[in-house]
Amino acid sequence: MAFEGLADKLSEAFKRLRSKGKLTESDVKQAMREVRLALLEADVNYKVAKDFVAKVTERSVGSEVMESLTPAQQVVKIVDEELTALMGGENTRIDMASKPPTIIMMCGLQGSGKTTHAAKLASLFKRQGHRPMLVACDIYRPAAITQLQVMGEKAGVPVFEMGQIDPVKIIKGAMRFGKDHGNDILILDTAGRLHIDEELMNELKRIKADVEPNEILLVVDAMTGQDAVNVAKAFDDALGITGVILTKLDGDTRGGAALSVRAVTGKPIKFIGAGEKIGDLEPFHPARMSSRILGMGDVLSLIEKA
C-alpha cells in the first residue's frame, strides 16, 4: 500500500540521518522533504505542512542539534515534539455549566457524524451518572429525528423533539422539559450544513445567541482533505467553537485533518470516534495521532533506534 511505502521512505530518511556522524543543513533539508511528503499524503493542509517543516528545519539546524552527539535522534524528536505540540495536549474535558443544564451543541458538515456522536456523548455522560437528554434540532434531513430517536434508545437516553419547527423554539422547549425532568445535560443535534451556506450558518448563530451553549463542538470527518482548514475556520469564525470531535478514525486514513483543524482554530480536539456503535468514543491522544499522521507505528521507537 502506498502509505506503507511512505512510512518506509520516512524511516529511510531518518536512517540516512542517523548514519551520518554530523549533519549538514542539506541532510536535514532532504529529510524534511520526506516529512513534508508524509504530511501531504496524510492530508495535512498544504500551508500547515509548509509552516511545520519550516519550523522543524529552523530548530534542527540550530547549533545544539547539529553539534550534539546524536543529531539524527534530535531531529526525529523535534518532529515528534512539534507535531504533538501542534495537536495540543491540554483540556480534553467537557466544560460543565456551574448551574445546570449544560448545553452542548454539535455542528459540522453533512454526514460528518454529528447525530451518531451526540448519542455517543449522551451515553458517556449517562455512564458517568449524569441525566443527559438529546434534542432533535435537525429539521431538514429526511428521517433525522427518527435516526436520533433510534440512537437515543440504544444509548438509553431520552430524545426531545417537536417536529420540524424553528430549532430555537425546540431548544427552549427542551430546556423547560429538562428542568421538569431533572436533565442536567442537553445535547443538541443540528443539521449538517456547508460552512458557506449563510442561511444555515445564521441559524446556528441564532441558537448560540439565544441559548448560549457551554460547548460548541465541531464534528470533523478524519478523512477530510485539504478543505478541512476552510471548514474549521469558517465554523470557528461564525460560532467560536469550543472543541472538535474527530470521527471515523476506525478507517485507514492517516487523519491529517486533525493537524489542520487544530492549527487554524487553536481549539482542542476533545474526543475521537472510531466506530458506529454507541461505545466507540475515546478521549484524544495527541502523541498517538502524531505517529499516525507520519505513518509510523510509533515515532518514539524510531527515536530509540536512531
Partner: peptide, 11 residues
C-alpha cells in the same frame, strides 16, 4: 465519494 475527502479516497 465525498468531494471533501482527501487522499484516503484512493484507498
Amino acid at each position: 465519494l465525498d468531494a471533501t475527502t482527501g487522499q484516503n479516497a484512493v484507498n
